[in-house]
Design a protein around this nucleic acid. Structure first.
Length: 446
RNA sequence: UCCUCGCUAGCUCAAUUGGCAGAGCGGGCGGCUGUUAACCGCUAGGUUCGAGGUUCGAGUCCUCGGCGAGGAGCCA
């Protein structure tokens, strides 16, 4: 008996194989029972004929409840009628071991469910082909990102999740007691620590959960999400964009190569992803602003006009980002945002202090911002001035400022939101499905 | 915080003008050798989110509250 993984089933055509898994669906048809079995790596149809099994066994198979655990052995056959991920192959049940007969009150039937019910049952929902596929793509996004960085001289350098006094207002930070030291806060970014790390390691990245207590209630926000943050010494804004487009391209290629059955199960139009290749278009904030102002002025529908309202100096809202992504089939860089709407540590544009060397990467098809980054201020005096202007506590930034005194160089970095990238690649419209157990303003269960 | 919508069987939903609370799925029993979220027959299953009000009569109308969704704002 050869134990196989369903994702490799094509290799075993004509051979006897064993799969271990769970009954996702059962259809009985008189003397014939179809079991759609999940084994974690895929979904495969197993067919039991009454004549092949002892009568009491067949009878048990015919009544096997959804989600029962089984070990099935039999020959693998190619059959175009067989559903599954990947489909096209099925196993004839010659032997079946029933590890557990599931209770009959499994809450998630295979019909439609409302969002709230599905999320209350997230611990079961992840068994569904759609959710399973999305989370497999997520894992590949994460693996591909590490793979590219690790092979391009970046050192993985974890940054703390418990952090001291807030770098900015405490309103969006989750707070916790920290022994006798007062308050600690869950990290919103590892960037400041990454900036320390590059002066030891040159090119680094951190990759972990980040926490934002924003009262955002949209399809693009979670309170706990995973962010990849590379930071590079001796790197300006142009070089940063090159790194971003190389990384994103690699991720897209890997997902296309390794997650084809999952994308197919999600009915993703992969031709849109196959077309992604660097260099990505670059557009200045000024150009984007001109375009959006023109769009705003020409809009006649009052409701839409209100949403598209724009003037130079504003940050983009979701509707603006959507309009900008419609201009290209590729991800698009928007660089040179107004200093006033960006963070204090961004390097000013030479000769134009009202603009800074920041860049956002917007995914196509209306997905919007997937990466945000900038060249950082490398001059001590300028950074100190900025910290004071923002009214930030100087003492908390002592170590950060000191980095500018000993070997400071131009450096840049960015953050990539794993959930937003995954949502884009999967073609789904809400990022809560791209993380196993989403945390939103209204949900910390399960 | 604001705007809009929703809450009826385990799930997804229906219920005409205020007039007997229903269907599909899921569960049970039975049938069928190619099902694809199978199909067919039978069957069990209800505090209509909560409190109060109007009315002969409220799932439906009114008031207050709760919960959720979509969007906006917010958002390194």
């Amino acid at each position: 008996m050869t134990l196989i993984r369903v994702e490799d089933i094509a290799k075993y055509e004509g051979q006897e194989a064993t799969v271990r898994g769970w009954v996702y669906n059962r259809t009985d048809k008189g003397k014939l029972v179809f079991l759609l079995v999940r084994d974690g790596s895929g979904f495969v149809q197993c067919v039991a004929f009454k004549g092949d099994l002892e009568e009491h066994v067949f009878d048990q198979v015919m009544r096997l409840p959804q989600e029962s655990a089984v070990v099935i052995t039999g020959p693998v056959r190619a059959d175009g009628r067989a559903p599954g991920i990947p489909g096209g192959y099925e196993i004839s049940v010659k032997d079946i071991q029933i590890v557990q007969v599931a209770d009959l009150d499994y809450p998630m039937s295979l019909k439609e469910h409302g969002v709230d019910f599905a999320l209350d049952n997230r611990h079961f929902w992840i068994r569904f082909p759609s959710q399973w596929s999305i989370l497999r793509v997520r894992a590949t996004v994460m693996a591909a990102a590490r793979e590219w960085l690790d092979s391009h001289g970046f050192i993985a350098m974890d940054t703390p999740i418990l952090t001291p006094a807030a770098a900015e207002g405490t309103t969006t930070l989750f707070e916790t007691e920290y022994f006798d030291e007062g308050k600690a806060y869950l990290a919103q970014t590892g960037q400041l620590y990454n900036e320390a790390n590059i002066f030891a390691f040159g090119k680094v990245y951190c990759f972990g959960p980040t926490f934002r207590a924003e009262k955002s209630k949209t399809r693009r926000h979670l309170t706990e999400f995973w962010m990849l943050e590379p930071e590079i010494a001796f790197c300006d804004l142009d070089e940063l964009m090159e790194i971003e487009e190389q990384l994103i391209t690699h991720i897209v290629q890997r997902v296309l190569r390794d997650r084809q059955p999952e994308l197919c199960a999600l009915k993703r139009d992969t031709s849109k992803l196959e077309a992604i290749r660097p260099p990505f278009p670059r557009m200045s904030y000024d150009q984007a602003a001109d375009y959006l102002i023109d769009l705003y002025q020409r809009e006649t529908d009052p409701e839409r006009k209100e949403l598209l309202k724009f003037e130079w100096g504003m940050d983009f809202g979701a509707p603006h980002e959507v309009e900008l992504t419609k201009l290209h089939d590729q991800p698009v860089f928007i660089y040179g945002y107004p200093t006033a709407v960006k963070a204090f540590y961004m390097e000013p544009w030479p000769g134009r202090p009202e603009v800074c060397k920041s860049v956002d990467l917007l995914a196509p098809e209306g997905y919007g911002e997937i990466c945000g980054g900038s060249e950082r201020i490398s001059d001590y005096t300028l950074l100190l001035e900025r910290i004071r202007k923002e009214g930030l506590p100087e003492s908390a930034f002592k170590w950060y400022l000191e980095l500018r005194k000993y070997g400071s160089v131009p450096h840049s970095g960015f953050g990539m939101g794993v959930e937003r990238v995954t949502a884009w690649l999967c073609g789904i419209d809400h990022i809560r499905e791209t993380i196993p157990f989403p945390r939103t303003i209204k949900r910390v269960y399960p």
